[in-house]
């Protein structure tokens, strides 16, 4: 098998806790803590996990928007820590991103058309061709071409999100990192966008990391699902296994809390995970899910659980994994 498209090894990103505008303390937020994960070419990895567990931070590390504080990441043969300017240029052309807050990444004084064209022009695409492409990608995200002249403040939340997706598509990337790409879309536009992403995967063999809290979306679109909890990867494996028969107690808690889709199911007993989200600052030794886990034993408290390989391509960081034959 060829080398993975994205290979992370013990990736770490710690932040200092701020005390004032320019002051920091010795305490650290361990937003991403030793993540090891590979994504093959042409694969869709869905990344889910608790809010604040480090998903966006991990994406920012892969995009070189923030420097990792430890570990190694190799993307399409380029080692992020040791890359030359030329290598980084190549990567910037190949990886496209859709951020969680699309509005904050568009220039308020630029029209939709020039926002979409700008990255192409930076990468040397001739103006006339960039203009053509801008129209093409706007159509791909199902927006009326009349919006080309609009400014960001004139657009709705979901329209901004689609502009961000269009902009990412314009460079014909090899890899796309999408952070909550459909959170502001109604389900019919969402379906159109998900179908589009799948078409591109089939036709161009694109590689995706898709971050979302929508469990229906993640189960629908992913080949593999990666689950994060408090800065760590707790489970990684084939989508149908992780989605339907998870082995990590946190994953199970998450899947069990999935919202109902019919009001008549109200009041049906639903297992809601007990306990409050833990701290990323005051971390104790042992399993980070210990205080909330109903399967916990003393063993879990003393040492960090190792990654266990349950089946080829399915790993879990738990001493007592569930659903194993």
């Amino acid at each position: 098998m060829s080398a993975p498209m994205i290979e992370m090894k013990d990736v770490q990103k710690y932040f200092r806790v701020s005390k004032g505008l320019f002051k920091t303390s010795a305490e650290q937020v361990k937003a991403v803590d030793h993540i090891t994960l590979s994504v093959e070419e042409g694969e869709i990895v869905g990344l889910v996990g608790e809010s604040g567990s480090g998903k966006t931070t991990l994406a920012r590390v892969l995009l070189s928007l923030t420097k990792m504080t430890g570990g190694e990441a190799v993307i399409d043969g380029v080692n992020l820590g040791k890359a030359s300017h030329r290598d980084m240029d190549k990567l910037h052309r190949e990886i496209a991103v859709v951020f969680q807050d699309p509005a904050s990444n568009l220039n308020p004084r630029e029209t939709v058309e020039s926002s979409i064209m700008r990255p192409m022009i930076i990468h040397g695409v001739p103006r006339s061709k960039a203009k053509e492409k801008a129209k093409e990608v706007l159509e791909m995200v199902k927006m009326d071409l009349k919006y080309l002249d609009s400014f960001p403040h004139q657009l709705s939340g979901g329209q901004l999100q689609r502009i961000a997706i269009a902009r990412a598509l314009a460079l014909s990337p090899k890899i796309m990192i999408l952070d909550e790409p459909t959170s502001a879309l109604d389900v019919s536009v969402q379906a159109q966008i998900l179908n589009l992403l799948l078409d591109l995967q089939e036709q161009m063999h694109l590689t995706y990391i898709i971050i979302t809290h929508d469990l229906n979306v993640i189960k629908y679109i992913s080949d593999k699902i990666a689950v994060m909890y408090l800065g760590q990867l707790v489970e990684f494996g084939p989508a149908d296994v992780v989605g339907n028969h998870p082995s990590h107690p946190y994953t199970k808690g998450l899947m069990d809390a999935a919202p109902i889709l019919d009001p008549r199911d109200r009041g049906k007993e639903k297992e809601i995970m007990k306990g409050d989200p833990g701290s990323l600052i005051d971390l104790k030794s042992g399993c980070r899910f210990y205080a909330r886990c109903r399967y916990a034993t003393d063993e879990c408290k003393d040492k960090d659980p190792d990654n266990v390989i349950l089946a080829p391509g399915h790993q879990v960081a738990c001493v007592h994994p569930l659903n194993i034959e």
């Binding site: 009326d144 389900v187 159109q192 998900l194 179908n195």
Partner: peptide, 24 residues
């Protein structure tokens, strides 16, 4: 709209959409 909810996996086929776009 109710039919576009993703209740399956991609192996069971593409999601149902509503043809066309909203007019501006």
């Amino acid at each position: 709209l109710m039919k576009a909810l993703p209740r399956k996996t991609k192996h069971e086929g593409r999601l149902q959409t509503i043809d066309g776009n909203v007019p501006r």
